Amino acid sequence: MWVAGIDEAGRGCICGALFVAGVIGREENIAHFGAKDSKKLSPKQRERIYQTLLESQHKGEIGLFVVQIEAWEIDKFGLSIAMKNGIEQILCRIADFATSQNLKGQNLAGRENGLEEIIIDGNTTFHAKIPHSLVQWGVGVRTLIKADDTMPIVSCASIVAKVSKDRQMQELDRLFPQYSLAKNKGYGTLQHKKAIAQNGYCPHHRKSFKILMQECLF
């Protein structure tokens, strides 16, 4: 049976992009990656699994997709719309992959190696529109709290999103070292807020996010 999962990284950050990732593959193959919730893995462990996922993708064994939604888009449309758009793009790419692998026919034939559902980490789809092809094929979309910790396919998506986010933060840290982005990963730590108070925003900060600068005074 084929399984698919979606997760994100950077949703709560005050700097950098939101990354939404999706992975689809055969259940028995996904189990071999040894994926866990990305927050419970070291950076080296995440990178190792990420590289293994890329190798599997290059062999055509899995589908791996990442959508990057920049800070300016989040400021313009809001975080919920950004999440909705990201999930919709990933769903479309999963649908395209399923078509290329002829999972439609397998699923409708009732075989166990078809795609039955796509699991999204969390408790909401953000009202994302499901591609007509998936609806037509009877592929369900289900949310599950802590799916990144209990479902290996979602754990894989979690790792892809997290590695993508961290790599961007490392790149931005080289461009804007005053914010220590490689260390705080774009989250609103006290030191990060103090750096904003002293230096202002960089072009990649989410200016629509409410940052409590009062605590920087103490």
Rank of each mutant, 00 (worst) to 15 (best):
residue 189 T to K: 09
residue 149 D to R: 10
residue 202 C to S: 14
residue 199 N to K: 01
residue 179 Y to I: 12
residue 116 E to C: 12
residue 75 D to T: 05
residue 208 S to H: 08
residue 66 V to M: 05
residue 39 K to Q: 08
residue 188 G to K: 05
residue 1 M to Q: 10
residue 31 A to R: 13
residue 50 Y to S: 13
residue 24 I to F: 08
residue 72 W to A: 15
residue 21 A to S: 14
residue 47 E to H: 11
residue 212 L to A: 14
residue 215 E to A: 13
residue 209 F to Y: 15
residue 199 N to F: 06
residue 132 H to W: 03
residue 150 T to G: 01
residue 58 H to D: 12
residue 217 L to T: 11
residue 183 K to W: 02
residue 37 D to R: 07
residue 89 Q to I: 08
residue 154 V to S: 08
residue 2 W to G: 08
residue 40 K to S: 13
residue 173 D to T: 07
residue 187 Y to V: 04
residue 24 I to A: 15
residue 129 K to C: 10
residue 79 L to A: 10
residue 169 M to F: 12
residue 34 G to Y: 01
residue 20 V to H: 01
residue 128 A to S: 14
residue 98 A to F: 06
residue 87 I to H: 05
residue 166 D to V: 06
residue 51 Q to Y: 04
residue 110 G to L: 13
residue 164 S to R: 01
residue 53 L to C: 12
residue 161 A to S: 07
residue 67 V to K: 09
residue 2 W to D: 13
residue 44 K to Y: 00
residue 65 F to Y: 09
residue 178 Q to N: 05
residue 100 S to L: 11
residue 123 N to R: 09
residue 163 V to Q: 09
residue 148 D to A: 12
residue 133 S to T: 14
residue 73 E to C: 03
residue 48 R to E: 07
residue 55 E to S: 11
residue 127 H to L: 10
residue 48 R to V: 10
residue 179 Y to A: 07
residue 8 E to K: 05
residue 100 S to I: 03
residue 4 A to F: 01
residue 166 D to Y: 08
residue 163 V to A: 11
residue 85 N to D: 08
residue 57 Q to V: 00
residue 84 K to R: 15
residue 105 G to V: 06
residue 95 A to F: 02
residue 50 Y to Q: 12
residue 202 C to G: 13
residue 54 L to E: 14
residue 157 A to R: 04
residue 188 G to Y: 05
residue 122 G to Y: 03
residue 70 E to A: 09
residue 56 S to P: 01
residue 114 G to T: 07
residue 199 N to H: 12
residue 5 G to H: 00
residue 77 F to N: 13
residue 141 V to L: 11
residue 58 H to K: 15
residue 1 M to T: 12
residue 177 P to E: 02
residue 211 I to D: 02
residue 39 K to F: 10
residue 198 Q to Y: 02
residue 49 I to G: 05
residue 212 L to N: 14
residue 123 N to V: 06
residue 45 Q to K: 15
residue 126 F to C: 08
residue 46 R to V: 02
residue 180 S to E: 11
residue 169 M to L: 12
residue 6 I to T: 08
residue 31 A to Q: 13
residue 81 I to S: 04
residue 63 G to E: 10
residue 126 F to H: 09
residue 165 K to S: 09
residue 137 W to K: 04
residue 199 N to M: 02
residue 183 K to R: 12
residue 100 S to E: 14
residue 34 G to H: 03
